[in-house]
Design a binder for these strands. Structure first.
Lengths: 341, 341
DNA sequence: GCTCTTGTTGGGAGCGCTCCCAATGCATAC
DNA sequence: GTATGCATTGGGAGCGCTCCCAACAAGAGC
């Protein structure tokens, strides 16, 4: 069943059916109704491949995830954002193709371009990765592939969507200051990740000399490192720059019999596991995961269709949700310095 | 850059280049080498859409995930299996399209067929879902869409890939019997899920009159339900039919001061978070997640290409990994009744 | 010598669309 | 009345492949 068949059934030309399918204005209401009725009656679906071949547009976008993304299940970021992107893509009438790439290996960019862009599988790319040390940004930029990074980037010319990490970090700093914190400790998995670094930058606006503990992405090793640090030294507050570290802070505090928030105040980023945050009474700066995903998808489609210029970052507001873990004297439900487009 | 261009550069015909690209045997070695060299030199990539249009094969498969899959991050099943499928798909030279569907809503099957199969986006489907109460199996079966379910199914005629749930459940039962367990409790999220039910069936071969506690997929509610049950009644062993329930058992046991394994023996299914299992010393029946994924992908591609008949289930062996949580007297590293192909 | 097979190559037709241009009808303006 | 514009419709060309059949050469068998 193809365009021509529908045309014959409806007594019009192939072109007219095509116009109806594509919502082209140049069809009389009368004809449109008739054609649409025939389409619905026979359950006709235009062939995506023929469309793509003729129009040079696939109506599909690629989501690039790092090779080992399942190792990062310590937080539920990946399923959550993938789900949200899937919903946004579907709403836009497009499809989502998953691309797994070892973005640290030199050929990554070329591989993705040749296998997915040049072969006409996707119109553009969404990049989800945990470090800026990638081999993706530059080749993609040079090849002119429409691309949105889901994370603040420091490669000039790239388009990205992210929360306001700097403002968020600063908010945590101000909160600590208001609470009279003297000696805070920042805990983070890696500072190679731009958003993480920016959060720390923001915090350091208020506490320039703060201690920082860099662990890695293993739960066990992070716990070990924190145990050791808290044995050696005494802090009155902890800023868990990456949210999945927060449960570890609780465990370590329990080990040393430190009460949260009385002896140790705690604030974290990435409030996407709300059930857990509520249970732990964890004060945190939220990630608008769903919003982030839908903005990214829309921006990418706009980029593909030439409605948006490349290189325009989108920054979403940071919001701090005060709960029990930071102690009292919480007045702030402050807003970050928004810089919407 | 297309076939014709390469043909001109290499001094052969379009057909010959096509044969080289598709690894067709009917090309002399001499010509093949020459053509391949030109292809490599200019970095030519065949257009996937033109190929699909001409051959009626997209070389893409669709992975159907349930609408709310991120809610099920209580275990890391989704990221893990998606990652493994992505790898398997890539190895097979194909691509993976993600499809999110509310498989409980009546139109699900028709929607997936019309939007992804009829429109020529994918050649076949992989189904990942948490209940058999779906509106997918029957329409897909009727429409003759190549489909593999990643979970034992009781709809006749469907092809599926799964571990041997029955044998696994029975193994846990035998282990309990060997350990002298008198009054076990089985905990599970829902028995609507066929694999879950089959695990219980297997367990009941040994303990026909076992108590069963059905909770749901919320961590908090599961904990509440178990707390209540263990307050009311005394058990000497727990079988966590779904692996993510195991940490809850530990929490509840700690609440009542019950030591594991001395006062309460514990065995679970789904040993895919090995780090956690090791830390908790959790005895469990493993899921061959990676193997499951690659078998499913290969089987689907075989189905699409007519190399495998539909309706043939693939059952992987169940293996029990004994650790501390079940107590001593562990002899079994038994194998389930394998029924390979 | 001839036919028959086998191995290799070339090119036409067509997959189902979109895009462009031409054609038509009809209302409006002079 | 004729010229001009706009709204609507139709059909050709072509997107870049695959598939099929024809063509040809070379060797085998009689």
């Amino acid at each position: 069943m193809n365009l021509e068949d529908i045309a014959k059934l409806a007594g019009v030309s192939r072109s007219t059916v095509s116009r109806v399918v594509n919502n082209d204005a140049r069809v009389s209401d009368e004809v449109r109704t008739k054609v649409q009725a025939t389409i619905d009656a026979v359950g006709y679906r235009p062939n995506a491949n023929a469309r793509a071949l003729a129009s040079h547009r696939t109506r599909a976008i690629g989501l690039v995830v790092p090779e080992d993304f399942s190792r990062f299940h310590v937080d539920s970021w990946y399923p959550l954002i993938i789900e949200a992107m899937l919903a946004a893509t579907r709403d836009a009438g497009q499809t989502l193709m998953l691309i797994m790439e070892d973005t640290f290996s030199p050929g990554a960019g070329k591989r993705v371009i040749s296998q997915f862009v040049d072969s006409g599988r996707v119109d553009g790319l969404l990049i989800l990765q945990h470090s800026y040390r990638d081999h993706l940004s530059v080749p993609l930029l040079r090849a002119g592939v429409p691309t949105i990074h889901i994370a603040e980037s420091d490669v000039t010319g790239t388009s990205w969507v992210d929360n306001n990490n700097l403002a968020g970090g600063e908010m945590v700093g101000r909160l600590f200051a208001d609470l009279g914190v003297h000696k805070p400790l920042c805990v983070s998995a890696t500072l190679e990740h731009v958003p993480t670094r920016r959060r720390l930058d923001g915090f350091q606006i208020v506490y320039p000399d703060t201690s920082v503990l860099i662990t890695n992405h293993s739960l066990a090793q992070a716990e070990e490192a924190l145990l050791q640090r808290l044995r050696d030294e005494r802090y009155d507050a902890i800023f868990a720059i990456n949210g999945w570290l927060a449960p570890i802070v609780y465990r370590v505090a329990a080990t040393y019999g430190l009460s949260i928030p009385d002896e140790l105040r705690l604030v974290s980023f990435d409030d996407f596991d709300v059930e857990m945050s509520e249970r732990l009474q964890l004060t945190s700066v939220v990630q608008h995961t769903t919003l982030l995903a839908s903005r990214a998808v829309r921006l990418l489609i706009d980029l593909v269709e030439g409605r948006a210029p490349p290189g325009e970052p989108v920054v979403l507001d940071s919001v701090l949700i005060p709960r029990g873990s930071c102690g009292s004297l919480v007045t702030a439900s402050a807003q970050g310095g928004a810089a919407e487009e």
